[in-house]
């Protein structure tokens, strides 16, 4: 078997390999510590027992799905009240309910989102709370 242009093919493969593995050696030795979303806000501190609309494990894994369902429910089905697992009914609103407690967007939302490299575009329309300085 004869490979044509072996030299050029090899150079091409080497370049491809280098580009493809770029993230690996670029980030070598630069381990980022896992984020710790911060829930130290006035509103949460004022609660006798901090509770969200669902329990922490559920929220951590599924908040994006929940928000997506909320969005459909509010905009398209006009159902705007959500019964939390505690039985309390909340307005299904990112800006007006979620961010009421989690008013520290930078330390709460962004810390994980930046770590995971996701940039949800919620904030192009929905209001961010004024960060507490």
């Amino acid at each position: 078997m004869k490979i044509y242009d072996l030299g050029k093919v090899t150079v091409g493969l080497v370049i491809f390999f280098l580009v493809f593995t770029f993230p690996l050696y670029y980030n070598m030795g630069k381990a980022t510590p896992p984020p710790e979303p911060n829930i130290q806000t006035e509103a949460i501190a004022a609660m006798s027992e901090p509770v969200c609309v669902e329990n922490t494990e559920y929220m951590r894994a599924n908040h994006m799905k929940l928000l997506n369902e909320w969005r459909t429910s509010v905009v398209r089905n006009s159902n705007r009240a959500y019964p939390a697992f505690t039985g309390v009914r909340y307005e299904m609103s990112l800006s007006n309910t979620c961010m009421e407690c989690h008013s520290n967007k930078e330390k709460f939302c962004d810390s994980c989102h930046n770590y995971a490299g996701v940039s949800p575009y919620c904030w192009e329309c929905h209001l961010q709370p004024k960060e507490m300085k």
């Binding site: 909320w70 006009s78 009914r89 299904m92």
Partner: peptide, 15 residues
């Protein structure tokens, strides 16, 4: 199927 409404979601009573 994502259009399925979250369970229990409803309008507010005073709507």
């Amino acid at each position: 199927a994502m259009g399925v409404k979250p369970k229990g979601a409803a309008p507010f009573d005073n709507a």
